[in-house]
């Protein structure tokens, strides 16, 4: 394994910072299965020894993240608001950022797809007509009707400042200050952002005010910025890579 980028425990299990204990357990089981001795998935890319090392990383991540107290300790020391500190109504509707999790909802969904296969007169198509997208999505709709997801989608810009729209579109030279200005432009309060991201106010403020010395290790900052960008419906890959470039210049040591 290389030492090029240290992973957070959440990355090792491929879950989001706010993953539920259940999600973490499932992710752990899948990760373990992937690198098990008799797994078809790993043996041709990793030697037995490498797989053993990966497995022990996975075990370590799970040991910490599956225990309420040690997860909280880990979270606290990295600026993540521990999942058990959400109030229960929030928790039940918490936003899922992990694509992984959304995916599983779809494969295991029991709702039957309303097939048009039995209708004899199939609609005639013309390219550019989008009705088929709606038709296919109608049947999937119930699955994304997550209350917070709806809230989260309501975050829309007022689209009245072409210059701002241009900057949002480009996502160049992203700093914490830029992120804050987008947040304000989109009428999202700091508290709402804390609610969505589940990161501590101290860190969020440090991020937005570019007090980079107060921020945690890069791997966590990167995670925060990605979530921040997603919450504001920015291109999160562009935003995070541009921001990390900014951070590395301001704080070369980490």
């Amino acid at each position: 394994m290389s030492n090029t980028r240290k992973q957070s425990l959440y990355e090792i299990l491929d879950v989001s910072f706010n993953a539920s204990p259940d999600t973490i357990r499932h992710a752990y089981i899948k990760a373990k299965n992937a690198y098990n001795r008799d797994s078809l998935a790993a043996y041709s890319l990793y030697s037995a020894e490498e797989s053993k090392d990966i497995l022990s990383e996975i075990e370590e991540a799970y040991t910490i993240l599956s225990d309420v107290d040690s997860r909280k300790k880990y979270d606290d020391s990295h600026g993540i608001i521990s999942s058990d500190s959400y109030n229960s109504s929030y928790r039940s509707s918490s936003v899922t950022f992990s694509k992984n999790e959304a995916r599983e909802e779809i494969t295991s969904a029991s709702t039957e797809y309303q097939s048009s296969s039995t209708t004899s007169n199939a609609p005639t198509a013309t390219a550019g007509n989008m009705s088929h997208i709606d038709r296919i999505l109608q049947t999937q709709e119930s699955k994304s009707a997550n209350p917070v997801m709806k809230n989260y989608l309501k975050i829309e810009s007022q689209k009245n400042d072409p210059e701002m729209e241009e900057r949002i579109n480009k996502c160049e030279n992203v700093s914490g200050g830029f992120l804050r200005s987008v947040r304000e432009y989109k009428n999202v309060t700091l508290d709402q952002m804390i609610d969505i991201l589940k990161i501590s106010k101290n860190y969020l403020t440090a991020l937005e005010e570019d007090q980079v010395e107060k921020l945690p290790a890069n791997v966590f900052v990167r995670g925060f910025v990605i979530q921040y960008a997603r919450a504001l419906k920015l291109n999160h890959e562009k935003v995070s890579s541009s921001y990390m470039e900014f951070l590395k210049n301001k704080r070369p040591s980490l």
Binding site: T4, R5, S240, S241, M244, E245
Partner: peptide
Amino acid sequence: LGIKTPADLLSAIENESSDLGGKVRL
């Protein structure tokens, strides 16, 4: 640099330039 896998290579590019690395990953 201890690069053994394509993933290591991506990380190494990111280490050199997070802007470029991010674009490559994207």
